[in-house]
Simulated scan of single mutants.
Amino acid sequence: MDSHGTPASGYWYGPDDRLDPPAAILQALRDYRASEVATRRSTRDSMGMGETDLLALRYLLRAKSTGERAGPKDLSRVLGITTASTTSLIDRLVASGHVRREPHPTDRRSLVIVPTVATDSEVRATLGQMHRRMMEVAESMSAEEARVVITFLRRMSSAISEERHQP
């Protein structure tokens, strides 16, 4: 161990984290995160767009599937970006054929941003198999296993969020 309590033989963990279950859990989370990041990068590359663009499409597709109308203000709020950045984002997505602007059906001063049918098909083709495999893993768990994993992940999310919000 060094002066910070870190094992001297590894960045975070010792050479055999299987002997230390908490370290093995954290390493498994890091491995999952690395796989997720690589997959997201590959998806962005194959679709020719950036992270924010992909997050916007995911939000817009989800809104469309639930019958919700999403406008520029909604995108700004969900993505945590400025109005100017949102306008640029929408312009890019319109130019690439991923979304279209439509008049709001009840507020003639507003617009709604709607993903195209082709976008829905492209996202399904790009991510569909991976989502099916992930769902198979989740469905293979017992109710008790699922409860433990859900509780753990929520507690980890809370632990990470607490650090972000400390002065």
Score class of each variant (00 low, 15 high):
Pro7Val: 06
Tyr11Asp: 04
Tyr11Glu: 05
Tyr11Trp: 02
Trp12Arg: 10
Tyr13Ser: 09
Pro15Tyr: 02
Asp16Met: 03
Asp16Pro: 06
Asp17His: 11
Asp17Phe: 12
Asp17Asn: 11
Arg18Val: 02
Asp20His: 15
Asp20Pro: 01
Pro21Gly: 01
Pro22Lys: 08
Pro22Asn: 04
Pro22Glu: 02
Ala23Asp: 01
Ala24Asn: 13
Ala24Trp: 12
Ile25Met: 08
Leu26His: 04
Leu29Cys: 13
Arg30Ser: 10
Arg33Glu: 14
Arg33Thr: 15
Arg33Ala: 11
Ala34Ile: 12
Val37Met: 06
Ala38Leu: 03
Thr43Val: 15
Arg44Tyr: 09
Arg44Cys: 15
Asp45Met: 06
Met49Val: 10
Glu51Pro: 03
Thr52Met: 04
Asp53Trp: 00
Ala56Trp: 06
Ala56Arg: 00
Leu60Arg: 05
Ala63Asp: 08
Ala63Pro: 03
Ser65Thr: 10
Gly67Thr: 06
Glu68Thr: 07
Glu68Phe: 11
Ala70Leu: 04
Ala70Lys: 00
Ala70Asp: 06
Gly71Ser: 07
Pro72Tyr: 05
Leu75Gly: 00
Leu75His: 00
Ser76Trp: 07
Arg77Leu: 11
Arg77Glu: 12
Ile81Phe: 05
Thr82Ala: 14
Thr82Glu: 11
Thr83His: 14
Thr83Ala: 13
Ser85Ile: 06
Thr86Trp: 05
Thr86Gly: 05
Thr87Val: 13
Ser88His: 07
Ser88Gly: 06
Leu89Pro: 01
Leu89Ser: 02
Leu89Ala: 03
Arg92Ser: 08
Leu93Tyr: 02
Leu93Lys: 03
Ala95Thr: 10
Ser96Trp: 00
His98Met: 10
His98Ala: 11
Glu102Thr: 03
His104Thr: 05
His104Lys: 09
Pro105Arg: 01
Asp107Lys: 12
Asp107Pro: 04
Asp107Tyr: 00
Arg108Lys: 12
Leu111Arg: 11
Leu111Gly: 00
Val112Ser: 05
Ile113Lys: 08
Ile113Tyr: 07
Val114Thr: 08
Pro115Leu: 04
Pro115Cys: 06
Thr116Phe: 03
Thr116Gly: 08
Asp120Cys: 05
Ser121Met: 11
Val123Lys: 00
Met130Arg: 15
Arg132Met: 13
Arg132His: 13
Met134Ala: 14
Met134Lys: 12
Met135Cys: 10
Met135Arg: 15
Val137Ala: 15
Val137Gly: 10
Glu139Asn: 14
Ser142Trp: 13
Ser142Met: 01
Glu144Thr: 13
Glu144Arg: 13
Ala146Trp: 05
Ile150Asp: 14
Thr151Gly: 07
Phe152Gln: 04
Leu153Trp: 05
Arg154Thr: 11
Arg155Trp: 00
Met156Pro: 09
Met156Ser: 14
Ser158Gly: 15
Ser158Cys: 05
Ser161Leu: 13
Glu163Leu: 13
Arg164Thr: 14
Arg164Tyr: 14
Arg164Leu: 15
His165Ser: 12
His165Ala: 10
Pro167Tyr: 02
